[in-house]
Design a protein around this nucleic acid. Sequence first.
DNA 1: GATGAATGAGTTTTCATTCAT
DNA 2: GATGAATGAAAACTCATTCAT
Lengths: 213, 213, 213, 213
Amino acid sequence: MTGTTATPGPRADMVRNRRLLLQAATEAFAEHGTEASMGEIAQRAGLAKGTVFRHFASKEDLLAAIMLQLLDRLIGTAERLVEADDAATALREFMTDGVEALATDRAFCEVIGRPSLEHSGVRDAIGRLCDAAEALAARAREEGTVRADITGTDIVLLLGGIHQTAAPLLTAQPQAWRRYLELALDGLRTTGAGTLPHRPPRHLHLTDLPGDA
Amino acid sequence: MTGTTATPGPRADMVRNRRLLLQAATEAFAEHGTEASMGEIAQRAGLAKGTVFRHFASKEDLLAAIMLQLLDRLIGTAERLVEADDAATALREFMTDGVEALATDRAFCEVIGRPSLEHSGVRDAIGRLCDAAEALAARAREEGTVRADITGTDIVLLLGGIHQTAAPLLTAQPQAWRRYLELALDGLRTTGAGTLPHRPPRHLHLTDLPGDA
Amino acid sequence: MTGTTATPGPRADMVRNRRLLLQAATEAFAEHGTEASMGEIAQRAGLAKGTVFRHFASKEDLLAAIMLQLLDRLIGTAERLVEADDAATALREFMTDGVEALATDRAFCEVIGRPSLEHSGVRDAIGRLCDAAEALAARAREEGTVRADITGTDIVLLLGGIHQTAAPLLTAQPQAWRRYLELALDGLRTTGAGTLPHRPPRHLHLTDLPGDA
Amino acid sequence: MTGTTATPGPRADMVRNRRLLLQAATEAFAEHGTEASMGEIAQRAGLAKGTVFRHFASKEDLLAAIMLQLLDRLIGTAERLVEADDAATALREFMTDGVEALATDRAFCEVIGRPSLEHSGVRDAIGRLCDAAEALAARAREEGTVRADITGTDIVLLLGGIHQTAAPLLTAQPQAWRRYLELALDGLRTTGAGTLPHRPPRHLHLTDLPGDA
DNA sequence: GATGAATGAGTTTTCATTCAT
DNA sequence: GATGAATGAAAACTCATTCAT
């Protein structure tokens, strides 16, 4: 009758340590980018270096895990919002969530901004994020509240861009990204001005056709 | 008789070395970002490492010098364009020039995106760049071709943001930034939609008032 | 009623685990030499690392146990062969068995080749091996099929030497040691050429008299 | 008129350091085998770790350099002895030199005894050593002072084997290898006993035909 | 003033061993 | 007794910076 609290194992501490580690890594990567050292992360978590490597076999793996966390949360948000009545509002909420998440994470920009992290899980997740965003974008295009040639990948790319715009102000004005999000949304809504230059992007990190006029 | 061509001695070599060094550093930082190593730069310049440190006391200093070069070029562009007849076109040309510069320089991006480079010269130059951009923005606001609450600092921040938006596509589609520049310009032109949220930024890297509504 | 099958409890498991462990360690050390890791051994045995350390307090101890196994087997062979009719054939069989054992065990080689393993049990066993080999050698000397100044320790030392001679060919030609065993046996048989230089060895790992003429 | 001592450069110290380093590495590898650490070598040489890596880009490179030193000296010895009048004596002198060299070097056995060091220079040198030894062996075969089926590679392999035979006695009786060298020479001289089993080896580390009956 | 050798702190990673559960 | 998580002392290697020549 002691219910589900029967797990007596030595896992309690491990789970706690893993949480501390993920927390520490999230903070360290967010603060210092991908250059955050494993040593610093261990220290932040109050663990020995060896323990970090027991949980994640390499720095790449740890970084990938943190990035996947972020990506999965965003994908979830997108998938939930596809069900919303108002596609324009849904798109705005998705982007708000995305930029806000990015605003706390310096490593994310580096990872999304460069094909530096060669991790299939992350690449796949980025692909899924683009797909989920495309679903949102499609509905908004149908509604006519967004330009006809805006893709989900455009939306995902803009998350990083909007964050980057406000990044230099981040310390002094942590909310400044809201300003540039609004600006971007206005740009996306500009339906009368014809198509944008350059072909719409389909995916990230997938070496597209080499031609690029 | 101490004419300008009288001293062909040591000074001439130093000038030449400095030029080689700046050239090499510009290329290395553009290519590899701030992580470019002093060793690689020395090699590219055909100089010894000691010589590099004679010209610039630290990597920070060298990086700052390179960034100043770029900033000064951009400031010059802005100041020249203030004289143009059509403020909207001038603004577009300034931003085109700026984003293109960023697209070819990984280090500039890193530096402008973060207050990581604590160098007063660079801070001042960014301030001057904002001022010059503000002159362009002011004329465009007067013309009514840009929202009333857009500042020069907004413009400068957008350079980094637009670049970042296209950065993941950079290898496959080096010109993709043109797409997002157009999107941003459309956002800037949206004059009927009222003011943007968040107070307009005045400067970069200057710890603003702590309050941030 | 405390018959031999009465305690199936904890003791039975320990015996089984010890067997698994020795098996795994034997394979791992044979394959990778003394550098085989405790982790790999534990995994091979299907046991946890802690269990390995419960059975053997250190890697040295485990290695010593494995080496003792091998040494005991060799000692047994020698003691059995002392009873043989033909001393020359007995000596050849002993050496064949010994070199073949070495050829399949990297660790044995490393350990017998150096006094690196400071373990009294192993030292003693090597002593006993030398004694058993001496019994074989004595009979062969009496028969006149071996030089008069060849000792059992010579024979034991030659096991390692013959193996080492063929070791570089081991992968490509796993049987090459037979060639060098024959060569050594011919050398041992050379009875007309007088005594060998250097005093005959009495024991291994026992710091002999410092003088060495 | 100061003659050839005109080199004023900063090289004097570097040459001295390199000598110290090679000395230290030679000793460390000889003493502890290939597992000697770069840190220990640096310390032995009185240098910082970075300096060691400036001279040799990796541990493999340093180890290869030390091994090449040894190999080149031996090759030189063999080439000199080919000119001698008495082939049997020449062969004995070559083997004496070789075993004596090995007796001081624990790493050499590991390198020769396993294809662990993947360094083309070392592989080539071993090949040249076998060739030089083959020249000596050929003359001895012609003289009839050595079995008809003994190759230079046999001779090179025996160097390691003879050393290994005496290795366990090394501390207590540093000259014991002379005993086993003599034994091996007697084996090589045994001309009346027919051919040895197993095909004669041609080269080291060259994966021979897979068949090995 | 130029050179490039030396430095040493810092990085990622491995592994025998200990210890809480 | 068994488990496997935690530890921490190495190890190889990098790089900005200093300094003797």
